[in-house]
Each structure stands twice: as C-alpha cells, then as structure tokens.
C-alpha cells in the first residue's frame, strides 16, 4: 500500500507533527512500509484467536481509592512556559 501526499498531510496534521514539503516523499515511503507490514499480518489466518489487548499475559492491578497525592503545583509549574494565579497559560483556544 502506498500513501500519497494528501494522506501524509492529513496524518501529520492529526498527529500535530510538521512535515516539510521536501520530506513528504520520504515520510510517505516509511509509512507505506509500516502499512505493508500490517497488511502482511492481516493476511494471517486468525480464525478462533482471541484478540490480544496487551502483549503481557497479565491483568490490571488495582489501587485502593485513597488520596495519596499532595499539592505540588508550584514544583510542577516551575517547568511550565507560562502560568498565572495557579493556571497554566496557553495561546487562546477560542475566539
């Protein structure tokens, strides 16, 4: 399966990853390779095989519903580009 420019642009927009015009060809080829691999796997007969949700054959461990985290917002916000009155600041998201 080979992807074209339109698909690469769509996927890069969804993933929020900038792909320069001169990189499109290379990215398209790489992504197509990955899809080819999936196509190969899809061709395998999986009749009667239970879908695998996780490669580890284990079940989820659970945590007790007890508050264990304390307020560390000052520390956590020290790495944020911009904050004000406890809020993280980002470029305006609505008009």
């Amino acid at each position: 399966m080979s992807l074209g420019k339109t698909e690469v642009e769509y996927i890069s927009r969804l993933a929020a990853i900038a792909v320069k015009d001169d990189e499109v060809g290379e990215v398209a080829a790489k992504l197509s390779n990955i899809l080819d691999l999936f196509a190969q796997m899809e061709a395998a007969d999986t009749q009667g095989v239970e879908p695998m949700a996780h490669p580890l054959d284990q079940v989820q461990r659970l945590r007790r519903d007890v508050i264990s985290e304390t307020d560390q917002h000052e520390k956590l916000q020290s790495v944020a580009p911009s904050t004000s009155e406890g809020l993280y600041l980002v470029p305006q998201v609505i008009e």
Partner: peptide, 26 residues
C-alpha cells in the same frame, strides 16, 4: 470516588486551580 481514575489525587470539587493535579494527571 475519593480519587482520580488513574492517580491518588483528590477529585473534591472547588479546589484552587491545579492543586489536585499530580504528575500522572499531567
């Protein structure tokens, strides 16, 4: 619940901004 679905942060309503958001929540 008392805490979040995947972390031990409180979900009590009305707290000061970001005082109940731990490294997992972030």
């Amino acid at each position: 619940t008392n805490t979040k679905i995947f972390s031990g942060s409180s979900i009590a309503y009305g707290a000061q901004p970001n005082t109940q958001a731990c490294a997992i929540d972030l």
